[in-house]
Nucleic acid binder design. Sequence first.
DNA 1: ATCCGAATCTGAATCGATTCAGAGAGGTTT
DNA 2: AAACCTCTCTGAATCGATTCAGATTCGGAT
Lengths: 336, 336
Amino acid sequence: MVVSIRDVATRAGVSVGTVSNVLNRPHEVSVESVDRVTKAIDALGYVRNDAARKLRAGVSTTVGFVVLDGQNPFYNEVVRGAEDEAARHGIAVLYGNTDEDLSREKVYIDLFEEQQVRGLLIAPYGDVTARLQRLKSRGIATVLVDRFSGDGRFSSVSVDSVVGGRMAVEHLIETGRRRIAFVGGPFDIRQVTDRLAGARVAVENATNTATLEVVATAAMTVDDGVAAGAKLLARPMHDWPDALFAANDLIALGLLQALAIDGRLIVPEDVAIIGFDDNAFAAAAAVPLSSIRQPSRMIGRTALRILLEEADDADSIARQTVFPPELVIRASTHPR
Amino acid sequence: MVVSIRDVATRAGVSVGTVSNVLNRPHEVSVESVDRVTKAIDALGYVRNDAARKLRAGVSTTVGFVVLDGQNPFYNEVVRGAEDEAARHGIAVLYGNTDEDLSREKVYIDLFEEQQVRGLLIAPYGDVTARLQRLKSRGIATVLVDRFSGDGRFSSVSVDSVVGGRMAVEHLIETGRRRIAFVGGPFDIRQVTDRLAGARVAVENATNTATLEVVATAAMTVDDGVAAGAKLLARPMHDWPDALFAANDLIALGLLQALAIDGRLIVPEDVAIIGFDDNAFAAAAAVPLSSIRQPSRMIGRTALRILLEEADDADSIARQTVFPPELVIRASTHPR
DNA sequence: ATCCGAATCTGAATCGATTCAGAGAGGTTT
DNA sequence: AAACCTCTCTGAATCGATTCAGATTCGGAT
């Protein structure tokens, strides 16, 4: 048995219009009516039908968040930041996880479009500009998260990954490391290539003879880090790098784990490791992990705030917000 | 500019009914019509209006998942399992994070009710039976995740936390520990009390003189673990327990971190630590963490499968699915 | 007594997809 | 040729909340 606004109106002895007004502009309704309607709603257990509301009003109080990797604590923190800000505006965040899968990414974007969300936050994997452009033409605002919008068509909130990559490798070089390996992938993820580009800059600017090699991983999980570690360990010892820059903390933790189990190489004595994100588990690692911190909650909060502004103001101009990364030094990169 | 089904019909030279049929029962429409309509849809960039669809048809192809703690990798794994299963049925999972906040829990349940999702998965924090009962009467199926439904009114998928708690403490006792502390909270979370109850059973059954004390935490995060560790470290050394059973891995990681920084007590020589969940970071911890593994993805997959079955069959009978926990022994509980 | 404006309420029209009774075309059986 | 199917299509009615032009009420001003 479904309770509709009509049932509430009958029970309260008013018209449907008045019930709707109680729900949406209570100040324009007499206190007595508000009271009667409220009582009727409670008595009947009425819940607004969001479909009807959206159909007629054309707006929604939810925003969507399409996340690249739901297992990654960094993105969870970003989502948390967005939720905090959303809650303050009486808005709910629904999110969908794409797991670096192009087709799922499309599915979720379409889903949120069908749902006519108020706006969409997205940490994109593939090239989604075409789809996002369509959302825009439909009046659904979009903000890119953790990804700079190269062509400036969309607002974005991110951290400068090139600078972060440079900071990481400069730190390694300053603490006396020479043979540096970048561990990460896949290379169609922008964050990966940016961090690597930063690393390259640092090596080129170095006054000493530091070298950089690249160890590719299939994805950015702990398991991929373990696998990369095993691959490196299969080499003769004299071929080993003396520092590893992991594309994110998950890979770094995997590397750490692989080395700890093997036992021949000690961190940081033989090998330094630095990660990226400074997620909640970096400090609790086998060897506390140096990392490049991203202000994750702040990214989420800011992205949501910009999203709401754009949703309310149709012809606002896209803007790029870039936060600085921050070097966090822990035991894993202590000098020998 | 919004493209409606009417525009598509006009462009394809058919009626709106035919367009709808192409979308929903293509086999009942001539191939020629399917073709014309498909072309028109592509040309116009038409996307179904989900609100109108839901309003009329009353069904939806999304399920909601209300999660207790979005930062916890364990729940992320469960969600991932649910998503995998959902994807196979062409269904999308939208989730909302309550962060152990009663009011947010209510908000999300109501939100999903308003949205008329196909079904709802929930890892509940407070007592939500009343609200869930209402969903049920509205025809929205509900499955509890990570929580046994005591009164059997709802289907549930969980791991036996009492058994898990017992396994953890039996393991500690078998490896020679005597003064055991349970670290966790708050005690209105069912999982916490169950795990503690299991621990009590193990201590009572022990042939030796093992003791159990309780160290309460405000929540179940790494930070709470660090705080609990600090509280314990403030005690005189002879008052220290020789084993810690943390209510989940996050707390355990926090404890490990607090002890490592302090440095006076070595894990596992002076203190053993065991966690619960066996999340992705347990193995990569400062000292690889023993834990009670829950089959997280399987929980998510199973919960979603049951949810869809119940959503399709209105008068199916609620059933409780309980998976066994599994003891995973790592360095943090090695005997002295 | 009449008029005015403000406050409040009413109820029909509306949003867009789905549904289904009924129509039309074309073929087969008797 | 009539009767009967089958296949396919049409278009009006429908879902429930919102909106807004118009109605009603009432205290105060003229």
